[in-house]
C-alpha cells in the first residue's frame, strides 16, 4: 500500500509493464529527434541575436539609434502638393491609427551586404512601430526589440509569437508567401507591459 512500507519491492516487471515502458521510451526518442530534424529541414527559430549596449549619455541603447536612423531614412513622409511637409526642421511623417505609427514601404529599403533586406521593428508602450508594406514572395530579415519593457510580438491571424526584450535584437527571417491572400496582418502584444495600455497595443503589416 502507498502508506505502508513494502517488504521487498525490487521485483521484475510484468509483460504488460515491460511493453509499456519500451513503447513510451520509443515515443520519447521519436519526439526527441523531431526537433533537430526540424532544424535539418530548415526550420530554425532564430540563429541571430544581437545584444545592444546602453548609452547612458544619450539615455537610449544602440538599437534605438539604429532604429531612429532607419525611420528617418525610409518612413513615408507627409506630402502637400507633392512637397514634403517640414515641421521644426524635420520632415513630418505619415502616421496611421490612434497611436500614430509611421509607415515604411519595404520596397524602397535596399538589400544589405548579406543579400537580405533588413527591417527594424520596435515594440514600445504602447505600439509596434513602424507599419511595414511588404511584397509577396520577398524575404525580409526583421529585427525586433523593445524600447522599454518586455513585449510580446504576436502576428495575427497566423499566430506567430516571439518575445521582444529591451537590449536584445531578435532577427527573424520572414517571407509573405506568394499564394498569400490576406493583405492586412495585425501585431498584438501578448506580454503584459502596463495596465493602462497593454490591451490596446497593436501594430500592422500590409502585404501588397
Amino acid at each position: 500500500m502507498a502508506i505502508f512500507t513494502p517488504k521487498n519491492w525490487w521485483k521484475p516487471l510484468h509483460r504488460g509493464e515491460k511493453i509499456w515502458v519500451y513503447v513510451i521510451i520509443g515515443w520519447g526518442i521519436i519526439m526527441t529527434v523531431m526537433m533537430p530534424l526540424g532544424h535539418f529541414w530548415g526550420q530554425n527559430v532564430s540563429q541571430t541575436t544581437y545584444k545592444y549596449k546602453f548609452n547612458p549619455e544619450k539615455g537610449i541603447n544602440e538599437f534605438e539609434t539604429i532604429f531612429n536612423n532607419f525611420i528617418n531614412k525610409y518612413a513615408e513622409k507627409e506630402l502637400v502638393d507633392g512637397k514634403v511637409v517640414i515641421v521644426e526642421g524635420k520632415p513630418k511623417l505619415k502616421t496611421e491609427g490612434p497611436s500614430m505609427i509611421p509607415i515604411v514601404d519595404a520596397s524602397i529599403v535596399p538589400k544589405s551586404s548579406d543579400g537580405y533586406v533588413h527591417l527594424f521593428l520596435a515594440a514600445q508602450t504602447y505600439r509596434f512601430s513602424p507599419i511595414f508594406k511588404l511584397e509577396r514572395g520577398k524575404e525580409y530579415k526583421i529585427h525586433i526589440s523593445s524600447f522599454d519593457v518586455q513585449h510580446g510580438f504576436s502576428l495575427q491571424p497566423l499566430n506567430i509569437n516571439y518575445q521582444a526584450l529591451p537590449g536584445y535584437d531578435f532577427v527573424i527571417t520572414m517571407k509573405p508567401r506568394s499564394d498569400e491572400k490576406l493583405k492586412v496582418f495585425n501585431i498584438v502584444c501578448n506580454e503584459f507591459c502596463g495596465s493602462s495600455g497593454h490591451h490596446t497595443m497593436i501594430g500592422k503589416m500590409y502585404v501588397k
Binding site: 495575427q156 499566430n159 506580454e191 497595443m201
Partner: peptide, 20 residues
C-alpha cells in the same frame, strides 16, 4: 489557437476584426 493573447483586459481595445 485563434490568437487571443493572455493577460489582456479587453481584446476589443485592439480594434475591430482582429479576432474571429
Amino acid at each position: 489557437i485563434m490568437g487571443v493573447p493572455r493577460r489582456s483586459w479587453d481584446i476589443n481595445s485592439l480594434g475591430a476584426n482582429i479576432f474571429s
